[in-house]
């Protein structure tokens, strides 16, 4: 990733020349990580969101609903997971989207696959992961995340969990779906792309700065062998502890990436780090509270428990395979 070395050069300049910190010190290390990641991640994010935003003028929720409604079960699961990966949605839209899909006779399991995959796997996370930790890990993350989403949807369907959807949901009759007119000219697409940058960065910047600060702290102040010693391959509880720690925590995928980068650099096994990232992004208390408006408690418990078990499994699998 040579073209990214410009951010290393910039961080060298700021840390060592401007601030006069020593390259050997802990503070210098942490500041260097912070400056490099903050410039790199915000520049990459802006470019990615703009580019994807311009393409996405073609994919609206109503179009997605039409596509999913007409599919047989098997292909619908895969499609729902892939749509979840490329659809940006603020968790505040989770409830109307959930009801809208069910109302169009999209099966419960397919709808849940979409809800599981969407926060965990998305184009922003994928492109940042490629830039920061390489394409192999990114591919692993993408395929297992998608697979867990599909498996979760199929399990919810097989167990007939539709009965745990709040009763009022089935009574809602949706009005005719409106397509708000999209400007498909080049100018319209550019404006839409810029709006997406403003909207998504406005929503996630704080998570990213917190993530980078945590990453920088880990990078500079945690002894090199600390994680390898307490949470390394020899500790069988590292993976479940990482998943449990991630349940109450919430960050979006972009904010988690600097933490992942620092943990990997400290020698934490890949499976443990992936399990932590999935748990932090896919299960969180705020999201469960939003879903409580449409799902009864037993289904929420199953949702969280299934994902936690699946992430532990993913963690062990990768620690084993990549050891």
């Amino acid at each position: 990733m040579n073209y990214l070395s410009i951010f290393t050069t910039l961080a060298d300049f700021v840390t060592f020349r401007l601030l006069g910190l020593s390259g050997a010190g802990k503070l210098g290390d942490a500041v260097h990580f912070f400056v490099e990641d903050i410039t790199k991640i915000f520049v990459l994010l802006t470019a990615i969101i703009f580019a994807v935003g311009m393409l996405r003028t073609m994919l609206t929720p109503s179009r997605m609903r039409r596509v999913l409604a007409g599919k047989r079960q098997g292909p619908a699961y895969v499609l729902a997971a892939l749509l979840g990966a490329v659809t940006p949605f603020c968790s505040c839209s989770a409830v109307p989207l959930f009801i809208g899909l069910l109302e169009a006779s999209v099966p419960m399991g397919v709808t849940m696959t979409f809800l599981i995959t969407s926060p965990m796997v998305n184009e922003v996370a994928v492109i940042l992961l490629v830039a920061l930790v390489g394409w192999k890990l990114t591919a692993l993350y993408f395929f297992t995340g998608t697979f867990v989403g599909i498996a979760g949807g199929i399990a919810i369907d097989a167990l007939g969990m539709e009965r745990y959807v709040e009763d009022y949901v089935w009574k809602i009759r949706m009005g005719e779906v409106v397509e708000t007119a999209l400007d498909n000219s080049l100018r319209g697409r550019v404006i839409y792309g810029l709006e997406q940058v403003r909207e998504i960065i406005g929503r996630v910047w704080l998570y990213i700065i917190i993530g980078i600060a945590i990453g920088a702290g880990l990078h500079g102040f945690v002894p090199a062998d600390f994680f390898a010693r307490v949470a390394g391959p020899s500790n069988p509880f590292a993976v479940p502890v990482a998943v449990l720690a991630g349940i109450p925590l919430y960050s979006n995928a972009a904010g988690m990436i600097p933490v992942v980068e620092a943990l990997l650099a400290k020698g934490l096994p890949v499976g443990t780090v992936l399990a932590l990232m999935m748990s932090v992004t896919a299960i969180s208390l705020p999201e469960l509270m939003i879903l409580r408006r449409v799902l009864k408690v037993p289904l929420l418990v199953f949702f969280a428990a299934f994902l936690a078990v699946a992430f532990v499994f993913v963690g062990y699998l990768f620690n084993f395979v990549l050891a």
Binding site: T60, P61, S62, R65, F89, C90, C92, S93, V95, P96, L97, I99, G100, E103, Y168, K171, I172, R173, M174, G175, E176, V177, V178, T180, E195, Q196, E199, R293
Partner: peptide, 26 residues
Amino acid sequence: MAAILAHGVMSTPAVVVNDKVVHAGG
């Protein structure tokens, strides 16, 4: 929620001017 969906809207926030949806999702 019932009122929101009755307008045919699946992504919020959405804006309705004089009973016509002019914007959805953001």
